[in-house]
Amino acid sequence: MRADTGLLVRATLGFFFVSLWTMGGIILTPELKTDAAWIPWFQLALATCLIWHRTLPLAGAGIVVLFGYATWCYGAFHLADYPVFLGVAAYLILTGLNRTLYGIRPLDVVRAAAAVTLMWASVEKWAYPEWTAPLLAAKPGMTFGASPELFMKAAGVVEFTLAFALIWTPLVRRTAAIILAAIFVSAVFEFGKVDAIGHSGIIVVLVAIAADDARIAVRRRDVALAPAYYAVALTGFLTLYYVGHAAMYGALFSAPVI
Results as ranks from 00 to 15, higher is better:
Thr22Cys: 15
Leu58Arg: 07
Ala115Tyr: 06
Ala90Glu: 08
Leu56Ala: 02
Thr22Lys: 13
Asp81Lys: 15
Phe17Lys: 12
Leu44Tyr: 01
Phe17Leu: 14
Val110Lys: 07
Phe16Thr: 13
Arg111Met: 07
Phe15Val: 15
His78Glu: 12
Pro83Arg: 00
Leu79Phe: 02
His53Ala: 08
Ala115Ile: 05
Val116Glu: 07
Leu56Pro: 02
Val18Asp: 14
Val88Lys: 04
Leu32Pro: 05
Phe85Asp: 02
Val18Trp: 13
Asp81Ala: 15
Ala80Glu: 12
Val18Cys: 15
Gly103Val: 00
Leu58Asp: 04
Asp35Asn: 13
Glu31Cys: 05
Arg105Tyr: 14
Gly14Gln: 13
Thr71Phe: 00
Arg54Asn: 10
Ala47Glu: 05
Gly68Asn: 04
Leu97Trp: 05
Ile26Arg: 14
Ile63Cys: 09
Pro106Leu: 09
Arg54Lys: 11
Ala89Lys: 03
Gly14Lys: 12
Cys49Gln: 14
Pro83Gly: 01
Tyr91Pro: 06
Ala76Thr: 10
Gly14Leu: 13
Gly24Asn: 10
Gly87Ile: 01
His53Arg: 12
Ala61Thr: 06
Leu107Val: 12
Ala45Gln: 09
Ala112Gln: 11
Ala112Pro: 05
Pro106Tyr: 10
Ala114Leu: 08
Trp41Tyr: 03
Phe85Gly: 03
Val109Tyr: 05
Leu28Tyr: 04
Leu92Thr: 04
Ser19Trp: 13
Tyr91Ala: 04
